[in-house]
Simulated assay, not measured.
Amino acid sequence: MTQSGMPVRCPVCRREHVYAPPTYTCGCGAPVVPPLARGAAVAPVTDRTWADAWVTVRCQVCGRQGQWPQPELGCGCGAVLRIPVRTPPVTAAAHIPLPRTAPAPRPAFQPITVRTARDVVTVAALYLRWLGYRDIRGAVERAPSGVRVAAEGVIALIEPSVRPLSLRDVECLWLTAMAEATTCLCFSLAGYEDAAHARAQALSVPLFVIDLTGTPQPVNSPADELLATGA
């Protein structure tokens, strides 16, 4: 899926450019290209906020709406130009999964009583395997907060302490997953800050809470969907 270059005139120096948008990879594996709003005004970037740095793009294959970097173009005069894109219409359902053959019923997840932080990590790794993720690495990578566990097609952030995961935790995990063209999800013993929960919902990051019986529980709609369909 490609788009031809779009002519862009710098509003500062009036120099002409031809801009071609980058191609990203959806969680379903299909290429995603931000749809340029041809003919719309191009504006120089004078300040940056998180909301302005990302655009919502719908995958033409699976229908999933994802957040991707706002297209920008650097002009030789020093101006950075924000390239406008067409935003997808708001619909009642943010994600329509592809039809799939009904999988064989999974056996019930077998919890492990949580007594230590290591137990939390073990439960999360077992749950990932139960969901259908393969090649879970035995070694864990210490993240700025929590622990990251990698499996085939996913990165999981696990917070085994009594500290709720923050907005920064979710955003950093999502950026890492985007850079590696993979998906991500979170497990937490103490839950999530309100801002983290809202951002995860917007970015389609599944969130799970692990209770002391060792049973992960979904706490947002992406997690509900992952639980229903499996990996």
Rank of each mutant, 00 (worst) to 15 (best):
T2K: 07
S4N: 11
M6F: 08
V8G: 00
C13L: 09
E16I: 07
H17D: 02
V18A: 10
Y19C: 06
P22Q: 05
Y24Q: 06
P31D: 02
R38M: 02
R38F: 06
A40K: 15
P44I: 08
P44L: 09
V55H: 02
T56I: 02
Q65I: 12
Q65A: 14
Q67S: 12
W68D: 06
W68H: 09
P71W: 07
G76Y: 01
A79E: 15
I83N: 10
V85I: 13
T87E: 13
P88G: 00
T91F: 10
T91M: 12
T91P: 09
H95K: 12
T101A: 14
A102P: 04
P105M: 10
R106S: 00
P107E: 03
A108Q: 07
P111T: 05
I112P: 02
V114M: 03
V120L: 02
V121T: 07
V123E: 02
A125L: 11
A125Q: 13
Y127R: 05
G132S: 00
R134M: 02
D135W: 01
I136P: 08
R137S: 12
S145V: 13
G146M: 03
R148E: 13
R148C: 13
G153A: 04
L157T: 03
I158D: 05
S166T: 15
R168T: 14
V170C: 10
C172V: 13
L173T: 06
L173P: 10
W174H: 04
A177Y: 02
M178S: 04
A181I: 07
C184V: 00
S188L: 10
S188H: 03
A190Y: 07
A190S: 12
G191S: 02
G191I: 04
G191C: 09
Y192E: 05
Y192V: 05
D194P: 04
D194C: 07
A198H: 12
R199G: 00
R199H: 08
P206Q: 10
L207M: 05
V209K: 10
D211A: 05
L212N: 10
T213A: 15
S221Q: 11
E225S: 12
E225F: 13
E225R: 15
L226N: 00
L226F: 05
